[in-house]
């Protein structure tokens, strides 16, 4: 209860500090609008259809990129994770490809696909793919050997073992990867829009910057933060639903 009040006070304090800092004129008002101007502008943005179209563009690119990355990573990760030879043979390549910053491929994507959503998708898919892929590998490797032997001696076939043994073991890992991937994909979606210029919040932010329309710029920054929080909350909810049976979630509910 008091935590919530203090939290609200914190938000209020931040807004007041922002207002005072802007009014003091330490930074020119054209570059740092006051908190009240920005919030009013945000309210106005929310009533225009253009804003919702822009937001929709971002959400479509984000979900398409995340979807491709997750599906591909689960499919490839399961195959590679279950075959020891493949795992050994791909290990060095994975360790090399994974840390390559995804923004490095922006120029290549632009050359190949032009200033389009496809180019943005190449950038958005790259990093989240590795995040989920590595988690799938860990998850598949974590299957309890005793359970594995038990299942085999009870005559469970390959598919049954995949369904009743590998999937439940790997699921928590996959969901963790998915949660990280969702927020990374959002960051990359907006980055791509900002740099490549495909339609979406990122491009609108760049347009407001070059206008320059500072209140619009700050309002949209607040929107991206809100979007990030929504993504966090939503993925956490998915995690809870899919892992209802898992001890880590059940314990949380008991407390």
């Amino acid at each position: 209860m008091t935590a919530r009040v203090l939290g609200l006070l914190g938000i209020l304090g931040f807004l007041v500090t922002w207002e005072v800092a802007a009014l003091s004129g330490a930074v020119s008002r054209t570059y740092l609008p006051t908190a009240s101007t920005t919030l009013l502008r945000l309210g106005r943005e929310l009533t225009t259809p253009d804003f919702w179209v822009t937001l929709g563009d971002t959400v479509i690119t984000w979900s398409a990129g995340l979807g491709i990355a997750v599906v591909a990573a689960i499919a490839l990760g399961t195959v590679v994770g279950l075959v020891p030879f493949l795992q050994k043979a791909t290990h060095s390549s994975v360790e090399f490809l994974r840390p390559i910053p995804s923004v490095a491929i922006i120029p290549l994507a632009v050359l190949v696909a032009g200033l389009s959503r496809e180019a943005a998708l190449m950038v958005v898919v790259y990093a989240p793919f590795w995040q989920v892929f590595v988690q799938v590998l860990h998850g598949v490797a974590d299957v309890d050997p005793v359970a594995q032997d038990t299942a085999r001696s009870y005559g469970l076939g390959r598919l049954d073992r995949l369904r009743h043994l590998v999937l439940p073991t790997a699921l928590p890992y996959v969901i963790t990867g998915f949660r990280l991937a969702a927020s990374v994909a959002l960051v990359l979606t907006i980055t791509a829009e900002l740099v490549i210029g495909n339609p979406g919040l990122g491009r609108q932010i760049e347009l407001y910057r070059s206008a320059p329309d500072a209140p619009g710029l700050y309002a949209l920054v607040l929107v991206t933060g809100g979007l990030g929080i929504v993504v966090n909350l939503a993925t956490r909810m998915v995690e809870r639903r899919l892992l209802r049976w898992h001890p880590s979630v059940r314990r949380e509910e008991a407390l």
Partner: peptide
């Protein structure tokens, strides 16, 4: 912690790249 936590959660959720235009202005 109670005072700052909601603000920090928000700042973490902001994609860091959108601060490039903001900081360029400032």
């Amino acid at each position: 912690r109670d005072l700052l936590e909601p603000m920090l959660e928000f700042f973490r959720a902001v994609p860091p790249v959108v601060l490039v235009p903001v900081l360029m202005l400032m």
